[in-house]
Design a protein around this nucleic acid. Structure first.
Length: 420
RNA sequence: GUGGCUGUAGCUCAGUUGGUUAGAGUACAAGAUUGUGGCUCUUGGAGUCGGGGGUUCGAAUCCCCUCAGCCACCCCA
């Protein structure tokens, strides 16, 4: 007996009855991105491991324990991509995309891989969409990227989300701030959870994020990141807010937003769903000045965001959003008898060549069964061909919604379906 | 990686203190004067009771292991 295989943990199949929804949501993304003149870039789903290790940060959880790594036959080290930005920047540098002059606006979508414990809205293979803007540090660009995210969510019909923004400063103000945090938290450490005690050395900003009640209480009075911004970061951040206000995009400043990837600086933002579970970040993004230089390119500033299709669609489901029309054939062909079946092959092929979607069922022979199948398929019309019609060179066209039917010439089917 | 809950037809679920051929709804298939769908009715097929091991005369039911899903931690999309 053949063994039945089951899908790997944390992955899922997109089955044909709902795959049109994914197509709708993805196409909407590219459509909105195009209105901002972003163009698609496609990169491989695996890269040399250090592409991610160096950019995402080798102390980050993603690199430390969530990457799918493998070695090829020549011993090269690769990893399935855990996120999109590193690959895009690698390609930007490798192909000198900046040489075209002006800014580079890129968008992408595709599968990402993280070895995580699966739960609702979190998978080991998941699908992200994202944008990257390379070539400017102007705060207007920050606002534009955020606006693009906002436009997309809105275009899908989502309402129950909020935008939170923050500035995590640049390298030099972050250093001051981290020192201030260590100074503040160190005397309280005994009252804090074990995780926090461990994290204070690695990344003191994380202590701001802790969910444990006692830690939360201490973190409440911690130094505010925004007060440690240098002048450049400060004016940048206020300008971003001014642009957002100008665009009429509502937001709130949340100083505890700490993005988990090392390359972020200055502006950080999240679109959060307000009625999803624990995995409620719809879109996360931020600025990453310095990353291009780190990949061996010029010191070109950049900013971008990424979001997961899974959470997006979960959110759309809870809000009852439109997911696009379910595809169905225009015509269902009912053939009675073998001569009609043979003729149907030719007619079907001609209709399809003319762009008319058509379906039939060879397994069913009775008229009743074929009509039932036609009804179930959602087809708008049925073409019925039997011996009577065959000898007159006609078919019966029946509209399923109204039940009206008439005999039409076989050569005129396409015109009858498209009256104009 | 840690903890809690769950796992019975394709889907949603029943299944009494372990007891004989494991049920329902829905979906599917065939039929109701044989060339006309939807509604109704009749009949039918379909389940390794997640998997493996153990206790027992007997396990879907009790015990152990394992796999998977969900929820939270964590992490983030």
């Amino acid at each position: 007996m053949a063994t039945k295989y089951s899908i790997p943990r944390g992955t899922y199949d997109i089955l044909p009855d709902i795959s049109y929804r994914r197509i709708y949501v993805e196409q909407m993304f590219y459509k909105i991105a195009a209105t901002f003149n972003f163009k698609q870039i496609v990169t491989p789903i695996f890269e040399r491991s250090d592409v991610f290790e160096r950019s995402v940060g080798d102390t980050s959880d993603i690199v430390q324990k969530e990457m799918y790594r493998f070695t090829d036959k020549k011993g090269r080290k690769f990893a399935l991509r855990p996120e999109g930005t590193a690959s895009v920047v690698r390609s930007y540098v490798e192909n000198n995309l900046g040489m075209a002059g002006g800014a580079t606006r890129l968008c992408y979508s595709g599968p990402m891989f993280r070895y995580d414990r699966p739960q609702k809205g979190r998978y080991r293979q998941f699908y992200q969409y994202g944008v990257e803007y390379l070539g400017s540090d102007d705060p207007m660009v920050d606002a534009e990227i955020i606006a693009l995210g906002h436009r997309y969510l809105t275009a899908l019909g989502l309402k129950n989300f909020k935008l939170e923004i923050n500035s995590i400063g640049s390298a030099n103000c972050a250093k001051d701030y981290d020192a201030a945090l260590v100074d503040y938290f160190t005397p309280h450490l005994d009252a804090m959870c074990r995780d926090c005690r461990q994290r204070i050395d690695k990344n003191p900003k994380r202590l701001l994020d802790c969910k444990v009640a006692s830690c939360k209480a201490i973190a409440k009075d911690a130094p505010n990141m925004l007060e440690y911004l240098d002048d450049d970061c400060k004016t940048h951040f206020t300008a971003v807010q001014r642009y957002l206000a100008q665009m009429g995009i509502p937001f709130s400043v949340n100083p505890t937003i700490v993005r988990g990837l090392d390359y972020y600086n200055k502006t950080a933002f999240e679109f959060i769903d307000t009625n999803l579970g624990a995995q409620n970040t719809l879109i996360g993004g931020g600025r990453y000045n310095g990353l291009v230089a780190q990949f061996g390119g010029k010191d070109v500033p950049g900013i971008g965001f990424a979001g997961g299709f899974e959470r997006l669609m979960l959110s759309m489901e809870t809000e009852g959003c439109f997911f696009g029309e379910e595809p169905r054939p225009q015509i269902y062909f009912v053939a009675l008898g073998n001569a009609a079946k043979v003729a149907a092959a030719g007619i079907l092929y001609r209709l399809r060549s003319q762009g008319i979607s058509a379906e039939y069922n060879v397994e069913k022979t009775s008229m009743k069964a074929q009509m039932k199948a036609a009804d179930k398929s959602g087809a708008k019309g049925v073409l019925i061909l039997g011996d009577d019609e065959l000898k007159d060179n006609v078919v019966v066209l029946k509209w399923l919604e109204t039940g009206k039917q008439k005999r039409i010439k076989i050569d005129n089917i396409a015109e009858e379906l498209h009256p104009e």
